[in-house]
Design a protein around this nucleic acid. Structure first.
Ligand code: NAD
Ligand code: NAD
Lengths: 262, 262
DNA sequence: ACGACTTTGTGCAAACGTTCACAAGGGCGT
DNA sequence: ACGCCCTTGTGAACGTTTGCACAAAGTCGT
């Protein structure tokens, strides 16, 4: 979590872990509001958000003492307070770079706009894609990144390009003035301090699930491999990845480059 | 993170935080292997993975004492050990439920198969979609969930349906024998103990970014709203969400249902 | 008007995670 | 064969997060 060591100069300093949960509370609150529920207790809201109620109360206490003892929280009021804390009382223009499978899915995603995030521009470098319409947005050339960012005062960028282009795109976004980046490419992005990067990596999530799935399966079996012996260094790779497939590491890896030899 | 309180009966008990980073290390290691680099020090690998080198060493030490003092780690060997720990020496069949924007993007995603995750079935309930081909997979009817799961021994399921269907789909997956679920729908899923759920929520990531972006912007300005006074309870919602848009909460919320009144 | 009941807000301790700093260990040059 | 130098592995300090448990505070019924 602590990409930037929290140089927090802000108000009281709300814990990162709390910030990460506020959107979940907000979602639960909207669901309650939709059902015309005016008041909710910490127990109920916690259950809806899938967290411990003490944790929820402590989280909310960081925003202030909203909530009435003996009653609970006013749903409407809390929606407003949480939204305000998250900075959702204003609209956030967003640029999406990369209009491939994922970029298109994102552009078509309704939940995007429903929280005040508006697509300011959708960019790609493929001439075959530039100019096409996706979800009421005409795909613009990647050459216009700087223009798109600065002319709309965009501060949030989404990277949905292949891994190989991600760092380059990132650099250009940052140079153009973007300070928050959501990265879908499986690469560790290098950014100057002051820029916030969050990553979403499907592959990592699956691997974490695989670990737990394996744990469940391997109730008992510790047959040690003959590996322990052959520790000699080699220059080739290939006898591993016994996944049966040949395509092993493809478009996924190949970057990461930067600081290995520094 | 601690969805399940880690009833860890397994080996030494590797911390969740470490597990979450292993895939990142693995990616960096593959990149090194591609460049025919045989040995890497903790400093170099840590830089490539974007973490502190002490943390990396501690993480790896949980797997065992691979690595040679004065030299570093054998890339190839470490790839094998990390893969083994994550359970990636075997293939994991996966079912994807929901072949909409996101489901299609996932099916087309190469990084999916490149780590040993194979799509066993792609399911949807829309008759217009069932039967079509997506990335060499024929979309099957959602009615066949149970069959698809049990006939292939699938233990990992991906939910890419709208929020309203997610819990229902989840229940059916679990009933069919799935024990690991990757959920893209913006809902808190309710699962019996023993089932592992991980969620990916784009909207939440953007909201976290918005919070930090706002922090940076609001260097100084604490104009308190007139809200403090009007704490009366109400039954309507609508004057909030001053996002300018009308579409406010749409397909996003509306579920979460379950345990609110429990 | 008051007391019983409900629920918040928080002090505190334990669990977990990160980072520092260094001793132990091993290769490599001489 | 020895000692220098480099890097690992980890003990210990520190910070963060979680969860318990309860006093403070307010509501609601009578
Ligand atoms: N598809 C998925 O489900 C999925 C899931 C997780 C992660 N990812 C990652 O997201 C990224 C995109 O995936 P995808 O499936 O959409 O890939 P894709 O190949 O379908 O789309 C990538 C798009 O980026 C464009 N592009 C390439 N270089 C560019 C540049 N320098 N500037 C602007 N645009 C550029 C390409 O023209 C292409 O249209 C990849 O890094 C992938 O690993 C994808
Ligand atoms: N598109 C995105 O970029 C994106 C990003 C983040 C999260 N999400 C979430 O992912 C989910 C899917 O998004 P999407 O854009 O692909 O939506 P979509 O509407 O394009 O696709 C949903 C698909 O699920 C199918 N479906 C509905 N009920 C089903 C059921 N009971 N069983 C099987 N299939 C069923 C529908 O027929 C449809 O094809 C949504 O919950 C959305 O909030 C989407």
């Amino acid at each position: 979590m602590p990409r930037r060591p929290a140089s927090a100069t802000g108000s009281p300093g709300i814990p990162e872990a709390t910030i990460a949960r506020l959107p979940v509370y907000l979602r639960a609150l909207y669901a309650l509001a939709d059902r015309s529920i005016a008041t909710v207790s910490s127990d109920e809201l916690a259950a809806a958000a899938g967290v411990n109620s003490a944790k929820l109360r402590k989280d909310l206490s960081h925003l202030g003492s909203y909530g009435t003892r003996g009653v609970g929280y006013d749903v409407e009021y809390l929606v407003y307070q949480v939204s305000r804390e998250l900075g959702l009382t204003q609209d956030w223009p967003v640029v999406i770079v990369g209009a491939g499978n994922l970029g298109r899915a994102l552009a078509n995603y309704g939940g995007f706009a429903s929280r005040g995030f508006r697509i300011a521009a959708l960019l790609d470098c493929d001439p075959a894609v530039v100019g096409t319409e996706i979800a009421q947005h005409t795909v613009r050339s990647a050459a216009e990144i700087e223009d798109a960012v600065s002319s709309h005062g965009v501060s949030i960028g989404v990277i949905a390009t292949p891994a190989a282009s991600a760092q380059h795109v990132c650099d250009r976004l940052v140079a153009a003035g973007v300070t928050s980046i959501l990265n879908f490419a499986p690469v560790v992005l290098n950014v100057p301090s002051g820029v916030d990067v969050r990553k979403v990596d499907l592959s990592i999530e699956l691997q974490i699930l695989a670990f737990h799935a394996q744990r469940r399966t391997v109730v008992a079996s510790s047959s040690e491999q003959s590996w322990q012996a052959r520790r000699a260094r080699r220059k080739t790779i290939g006898e591993f990845a016994d996944s049966g497939g040949a395509d092993g590491l493809d478009a996924d890896t190949g970057v990461e480059a930067q600081a290995v030899g520094t």
